[in-house]
Computed example of a mutant assay.
Amino acid sequence: MRDPLPFTPTVFPGRAAFERPAPRPEPRRYGPFTALQWVGASIVAGVGALFALAMVVFATRWLVSLEPLRDFLATYPGEYHLPESAPVGLPAWLGWQHFLNAFFMLLIIRSGLQVRREKRPSAFWTPRWNSKRKTSLTIWFHQSLDLLWLVNGLVFLVLLFVTGQWMRIVPTSWEVLPNALSAMLQYASLDWPSENGWVNYNSLQQLAYFTTVFVAAPLAILTGVRMSGLWPRKAETLNRAYPIEWARRVHFPVMLFFVAFIIVHVALVFATGALRNLNHMYAAQGSTDPTAYADNWVGFWIFAASVLVMAGGWIAARPLVLAPIARLFGTVSAR
């Protein structure tokens, strides 16, 4: 190798033989994919979902055209009669409860997702009654919202049973099951059941509301308390009986259930007569006639104002605004 070449080279190897080009920068990733990959995956998933939905609609419409299914839908139209003592209409207090529940739930979901992805908290909060227990300002905000949501829920339950409104969301007959199946078939066939929420919900709605109020909400509370600072840390027997890992495995799926319920609920409110439904819930106006649609915009404008309030709460939920409020109940520090 040290000896000179026995011939004179006649070809220049080029700059590439001596210099390596700088590697191209990696595109920024959002989770497992880049922005372009997310767009492509969203398009493919959307097309696939539309195709699957079309297949479900076609298959359901074929099924309900069969004579046994036609008889089933005639026997169970999608709802059953409530007890004679059941109230008619939605009171004003239910509209306020509905708004407060939506407001707290929106901020709870927002702060809960922040807690999951927060690695370096921007601020910490220490309660006055326990200087050794320090938590991030985001966790304090999340748990404070949980307490407000819990108080609002307790008021809702008391009023629900005192006024008899519980009969609208708690099944009072086993007919709720075949009627819920009937309503599901009608929704899936896009021949939606006629309904009037001012008088009675269809059975599928009733089961959804019952599950949300009496199953999902208690699960969220029980699992949230287990992961919060309110849970006694030194109760070894209680901790072994109810491990925190169980609470973590249940708490997040319950949050996903609430998100799915909110999306479907809002979509159906606007798809099944927006003005009528908004007047029912926000303006306490309605009619016993299932074909009557409210032609005024009172409920809509109240709903629009509530959306602005929720948007303001979403924007204000940041350390600059939260820190002065948190100082009223403890100490806020950078470490």
Rank of each mutant, 00 (worst) to 15 (best):
M1I: 04
L5W: 02
P6Q: 07
P9G: 09
V11Q: 07
V11T: 15
P13Q: 05
F18I: 14
E19R: 15
P21K: 13
P21T: 14
R24L: 14
P25C: 08
P25R: 11
P32D: 06
A35D: 03
A35N: 01
L36K: 13
Q37E: 15
Q37R: 14
G40L: 10
A41M: 14
V44D: 03
A45E: 02
L50D: 03
L50W: 04
V56T: 08
F58H: 08
A59R: 10
L66D: 01
L66Y: 01
R70N: 05
F72H: 08
P83Y: 05
S85L: 10
A86D: 03
G89F: 04
G95K: 12
G95W: 05
W96E: 01
I108S: 08
I109M: 13
S111K: 06
L113C: 09
K119Y: 02
S122E: 14
R128F: 11
S131E: 10
I139C: 01
W140Y: 06
F141V: 12
W149H: 10
L150M: 13
G153I: 07
F156E: 02
V158T: 09
L160N: 03
L160Y: 04
F161I: 11
V162L: 13
T163I: 14
T163S: 15
G164I: 11
E175W: 10
L177M: 13
P178A: 04
N179E: 04
A180C: 06
S182H: 01
Y187R: 00
S189K: 03
P193F: 04
G197M: 03
G197F: 02
W198S: 03
N200I: 10
L204A: 15
L207N: 05
L207H: 04
Y209P: 02
T211P: 00
T212R: 00
A220W: 05
I221L: 14
L222K: 00
G224A: 02
R226L: 02
M227G: 09
M227Y: 01
L230W: 14
R240A: 11
R240Y: 05
A241V: 01
W246L: 15
W246I: 14
F252V: 15
F261I: 11
I262T: 11
I262E: 05
H265K: 12
A267P: 00
V269Y: 01
T272A: 12
R276D: 09
N277A: 12
H280L: 09
Y282N: 09
A284P: 03
A284W: 14
Q285F: 11
V298Q: 13
G299N: 08
F300W: 13
I302N: 03
L308S: 04
V309G: 01
A311V: 15
I315H: 05
A316S: 12
R318N: 10
V321S: 05
I325N: 04
A326H: 03
G330W: 07
